[in-house]
Design a binder for these strands. Sequence first.
DNA 1: CGACAACTTGACGGGCGTCAACCGGAGTGG
DNA 2: CCACTCCGGTTGACGCCCGTCAAGTTGTCG
Lengths: 243, 243
Amino acid sequence: MPARSDIVFSVLSRKLARLAPLDAADLAALSSLPFQIEAAPRFRQLIREGDTPDRCCLLLKGFAARHKVATDGARQIVSFHIPGDLLDIQHLLLAQADHSVEAITAAKVAWIPKTQLLRLAWQRTMIGRALWRDCLIDASIFREWVLNVGRRDAKARIAHMLCEFAVRCDAAGVGNRENFELPMTQTQIADATGLTAVHVNRTLKALDEDGAILRVRNHFVIQDWGRLCRIGGFDAAYLHAAA
Amino acid sequence: MPARSDIVFSVLSRKLARLAPLDAADLAALSSLPFQIEAAPRFRQLIREGDTPDRCCLLLKGFAARHKVATDGARQIVSFHIPGDLLDIQHLLLAQADHSVEAITAAKVAWIPKTQLLRLAWQRTMIGRALWRDCLIDASIFREWVLNVGRRDAKARIAHMLCEFAVRCDAAGVGNRENFELPMTQTQIADATGLTAVHVNRTLKALDEDGAILRVRNHFVIQDWGRLCRIGGFDAAYLHAAA
DNA sequence: CGACAACTTGACGGGCGTCAACCGGAGTGG
DNA sequence: CCACTCCGGTTGACGCCCGTCAAGTTGTCG
């Protein structure tokens, strides 16, 4: 059990080591990063669209979602985040937030000064490489989501979303691929898939009746991984083995 | 009029200079990059999903689109590209292509060795910054597209796509914001917006009747920029003033 | 035990997909 | 110069997936 002050280093180094090979000097540099820990209750807005943040948010515990809102008020979640994720790494080089981020469960985050992280990115090539690579994988996931909401029907969309979430949790060592708690509500699934909460409910029921998943309230068991993948047209290649 | 061998430098430096401040040494480094020019006819696949390219593709002339295909064969275009765009900058750090890129008009491209470009990114901080920033803006556009296909109706989706394309062409100095040739077919617009070609046709007609645009075959004039933006819920902030 | 959020279910309607036919321009070959 | 072909655009009829509205249920937390 790491001491409280070591949690940030442990989470961040594990994340970045999956993205690029880090040596002892890289790790030392990471461990010297200043940070500030914050406990965020559910629904806390961590980043607001239009903000010009000067620090970067690392998710230590709990789950978060990034979302945009259309002019008519409709909400679109563009990604879900799990412990270890950097929630707004894009602000290292973009001044203004083009979307909001909020905790979807009670969460713990660490705030790291933007300038410090950016300095490391240029001084330590492999840290820079890991951070840049993280952005690229992020972008790849967004592309897959464009396909998901653009060209799949409701059942496939939700199946795909569940597969992605399961694989990412698995890779990050958060829970198990075939048996995990879904941290989001059906309304949030709807906002992520471009559907309505009512239709999500009907579709989850259908996936249950198909034998692909098993639900007891928001506890999900993926009963037939292969079938769920087939329904969702899921192929993990776009995650580039690291998200 | 630059000599043929200078076109690449001129296009690339203009693009990167919009993304980060470059000094004389940066420009010199760019001008020393090796490359290979290729004329690509319409529909030429420049990058194929699953490839592991060792070079990077700079679009010099013409237009291109990136797309993914679902398991049922449905096609989803995830972005359009205009002269100056780096078409597969993500392959600098990701081994395998997770999507395809094809020329949608006759085009001219330059292939730049991946290792050379990557070397510059680490040696010349501002070049690295520009390249990374380009990736981040790409990702921001993908997020907006997720919102577009997920939460807007057909009319707003197409209006938004037209606005984005016009603004980007304008910023890159390719054509004029209010009067330009659309290089893509209605089928391609459909693949980009998650609609069908038939419905795109009906919706373009409706936009024409609204007085927002004016069409004569595939020549488009944006007749009422403000109205088109309002219909599409378009706000250029997500382009971060550089795409 | 009341209040509230989240889930559930049914009825109904509309936006968009599907299918099918036709048109019109550009390229091609005789 | 004119048929022929092909791609892309255009239009109409019809139907379904999913949205909307509304009511009810369940679990949770004070």
